[in-house]
């Protein structure tokens, strides 16, 4: 399970979500899935079961760590917690264009983050082109 945060205040939340979608659709389609973070907050039994019975990586946009804290509120300890802001600090030239429309630099950061996550969960990373 890869659980991105729900942030829409800054672009980092969207980068985490897009990296998660890239993992699910492109890099590790058979091994990665996600669910809505908000479902954990209402104790949705299916969402909670998915979290409790799988390895969980959280991808948070900012230091509030909403994804990690909400997953851990179910009693599950996350297997890996990633902050998008940390990835951005290593690639400061890749400044997203907008909060939800990331533009080319933002999507480059999405790819870098998705590939890092894929290696961490032992997925075969496909070379671009």
């Amino acid at each position: 399970m890869v659980m991105p945060c729900s942030g829409i205040g800054k672009a980092y939340g969207e980068i985490g979500r897009q990296a998660t979608y890239a993992l699910m659709d492109d890099l590790c389609p058979d091994r990665v899935t996600t669910t809505c973070l908000a479902k954990l907050m209402i104790g949705d039994p299916d969402a909670v079961d998915l979290i409790k019975n799988n390895e969980v990586i959280t991808v948070d946009g900012c230091a509030h760590d909403c994804a990690r804290k909400n997953v851990e509120s179910t009693g599950k300890k996350v297997d890996r917690a990633v902050r998008v802001i940390s990835a951005f600090k290593q690639h400061r030239d890749l400044k997203p264009a907008g909060v939800l429309d990331l533009g080319e630099p933002g999507y480059k950061l999405v790819k870098i983050l998705a590939q890092d996550l894929a290696q961490g969960i032992d997925c075969p990373v496909r070379k671009e082109d």
Binding site: C5, S6, I8, G9, M41, H64, C66, A67, V99
Partner: peptide
């Protein structure tokens, strides 16, 4: 929601990330 915050009602709207109710 971003469209409302940025374009339609920028002076009259604010938002919060829902999970911050638990994390914050």
């Amino acid at each position: 929601c971003r469209k409302v915050l940025d374009k339609l009602k920028p002076s009259n709207t604010v938002t919060i990330c829902l999970p911050l109710f638990i994390a914050g």
